[in-house]
């Protein structure tokens, strides 16, 4: 099980995967938006998206878990 964390504070702009999706290392899971910048959050591992911890529009702090992979 792997936790994917936000690398900056901001709001969740778009989620580009759904629970159950197979993902590979380097693939974007969601895009954070903060202060006119969009930062994609990618996974470093292969796996299946077990749980998305956020929804579009949520505010996340740096280090918050946004998704759990299996």
């Amino acid at each position: 099980m792997t936790e994917v964390k936000a690398n900056m504070a901001g709001s969740v702009w778009k989620i580009v995967v759904t629970e159950g999706d197979e993902v590979t290392s380097g693939q974007d899971l969601l895009i954070l938006e903060s202060m006119k910048m969009e930062i994609p959050i990618a996974t470093d591992d292969d796996g299946t998206v077990k749980e998305l911890k956020v929804k579009e529009g949520d505010f996340v702090n740096e280090g918050d878990v946004v998704a759990i992979l299996e």
Binding site: N7, M8, A9, G10, S34, N61, E62
Partner: peptide
Amino acid sequence: YAEDPKTFYPAPG
């Protein structure tokens, strides 16, 4: 700027 001084990523809060 409210941002990380090395990555320059935004740091609201």
